[in-house]
Amino acid sequence: MGAKGRKPRLAVWKFASCDGCQLTLLDCEDELLAIAGAVDIAYFPEATRGKIEGHYDISLVEGSITTSHDAARIHEVRRRSTTLVTIGACATTGGIQALRNFADVKEYTSVVYARPDYISTLADSTPIADHVAVDFELRGCPISKYQLMETISAFLAGRRPVTPPHSVCMECKIKGNVCVMVAHGTPCLGPVTHAGCHAVCPSYNRGCYGCYGPMETPNPTSLTHRMKALGMGQKEVQRVYRTFNADAPVFRKESERHDP
């Protein structure tokens, strides 16, 4: 991956985000030495003050684009990176802050800030792929450390990362989980949500919150019909689709069908 005689250089970049996905890299406690052994962590403000100018073999990009400054900066990151991987819901679908896309951001700033004229922000929160070419997208809010390790390992080996885009239901069934929707009547976004979390919420008898965004061929209209039969109202349906991946097109469309 890297040029001859040196380890591949890895950079971690932050845009509009909560840092949770970057922290997943630090959360790889037991594997962190192996990661540091395999790649040169050349730029990672969350973990180190060191900074290396130049080119990076792998860039992990966290966060969405919400300012004109960031809209320009992502192009600089793209220029400096051989492989650009977005990590997490913000970078991949615009994140929770994409709720602004459903409202008037000027109205928000006038209510929240004493001096709204100090605030320089874009009307929308948009995913990285809306601005530059992205080589691979890692889903989740936050991402899974196993999928992060898998992605880095795969790029180092020159193979395709194994991050299946099927439903969370498949993960539940492989684990032997009991379906919370069928057996308990708990509304669950698992059938329309991209796998990757090892079905963490249903494993604790909670419905899936859709942190990984839409699965490959989602059918939210049919799922919503069922969730309503289980007692969900118009507003609740809108809310479950408007969370971490609110502006993912399929979730957006379904939430807009349920304006109260």
Binding site: S167, M170, K173, V192, P218, N219, S222
Partner: peptide
């Protein structure tokens, strides 16, 4: 097809 979630549950069980 309008109702099917293509979630795979039927095949898993």
């Amino acid at each position: 097809a309008k109702r099917c979630l293509t979630c795979g549950n039927c095949t898993m069980v």
